[in-house]
Simulated assay, not measured.
Amino acid sequence: MSKLTLGSYPHMLGFEQLERLLERSAKSGNEGYPPYNIEQTSDHSYRITLAVAGFGEEDLAITVEDRQLVIRGRQGDDSEGRVFLHRGIAARQFQRMFVLADGVEVGEAVMENGLLHVDLTRARPETVVQTINIKKG
């Protein structure tokens, strides 16, 4: 069975970058931690919420790299000198990546009750009508 690509459709011109983004997103290695929600907050805005209990603002980093929103968390190991009878809460790190469409901008990020909220907005595209003159050859 051959793999269908966007290049297989002759009327879909210039979408090679979208195909690369989809492949990169599939390979991003996002596991199940931390859990997250994505909600649409208006016609042109979204909110990503990650459950980051135990992380402080200084333990988190949010960057946009090549149209990908990358959220990283790294907790320090504060167990030195402590004796645990049971340790079910481990200090762990994570990296979550979200591919952003053109025109989607990252707004503010807010920590609230162990949840990290990241707001996104999408610019409204302008409708452009262009008339192409036909020259005689």
Rank of each mutant, 00 (worst) to 15 (best):
Tyr36Val: 02
Arg87Ile: 06
Arg20Asp: 12
Gly76Asn: 10
Ile134Glu: 09
Arg92Cys: 09
Glu108Met: 05
Val70Ile: 15
Gly103Leu: 11
Gln68Leu: 02
Ala53Met: 08
Thr63Asp: 15
Thr49Ser: 15
Arg122Thr: 07
Val110Met: 12
Arg24Glu: 12
Ile48Arg: 07
Leu22Arg: 10
Arg96Ile: 03
Glu112Met: 03
Arg124Asp: 08
Gly29Asp: 07
Asn113Ile: 00
Ala123Arg: 15
Ala101Gly: 13
Ala53His: 09
Leu18Ser: 11
Ser42His: 12
Ala26Asn: 10
Val106Thr: 09
Glu65Leu: 06
Arg82Gln: 12
Asp66Gln: 13
Pro125Arg: 10
Gly73His: 06
Asp119Pro: 00
Gly107Asn: 03
Val99Ala: 15
Ala61Tyr: 01
Val118Cys: 09
Asn37Ala: 11
Arg72Glu: 14
Asp78Ile: 09
Gly32Glu: 12
Val99Thr: 15
Ala123Tyr: 02
Met111Gly: 01
Arg72Met: 11
Glu23Gln: 11
Glu108Lys: 14
Leu22Trp: 09
Ile71Val: 15
Ile38Thr: 09
Ala53Val: 08
Thr49Glu: 13
Glu80His: 04
Gly107Arg: 05
Glu31Ser: 15
Gly88Cys: 04
Leu50His: 03
His117Trp: 02
Leu69Lys: 03
Gln40Ile: 07
Asp102Asn: 14
Val104Trp: 06
Leu116Arg: 01
Ile71Phe: 05
Tyr46Asn: 01
Arg87Ala: 13
Phe98Asn: 03
Val70Tyr: 04
Leu69His: 08
Gly88Asp: 15
Gln130Tyr: 06
Gly81Leu: 08
Glu58Cys: 01
Val110Gly: 01
Pro34Asp: 09
Arg47Ile: 07
Arg74Asn: 09
Gly114Ile: 04
Arg72Leu: 06
Ala51Thr: 10
Thr121Glu: 13
Ala91Lys: 10
Ile89Glu: 13
Leu116Cys: 01
Ala123Ile: 03
Val99Arg: 01
Ala109Asn: 08
Leu116Thr: 02
Gln93Glu: 15
Glu19Trp: 06
Pro34Thr: 10
Ala101Trp: 03
Glu112Gln: 14
Ile38Phe: 13
Gln93Asp: 14
Gly76Phe: 04
Arg20Gly: 02
Ser28Asp: 12
Met111Pro: 00
Asn113Cys: 00
Leu18Met: 07
Leu69Trp: 02
Glu126Trp: 04
Ser25Trp: 07
Ser79Pro: 03
Val99Ile: 05
Phe84Leu: 12
Val52Met: 07
Lys135Ile: 04
Thr131Gly: 01
Val104Phe: 08
Ile38Arg: 07
Glu23Trp: 04
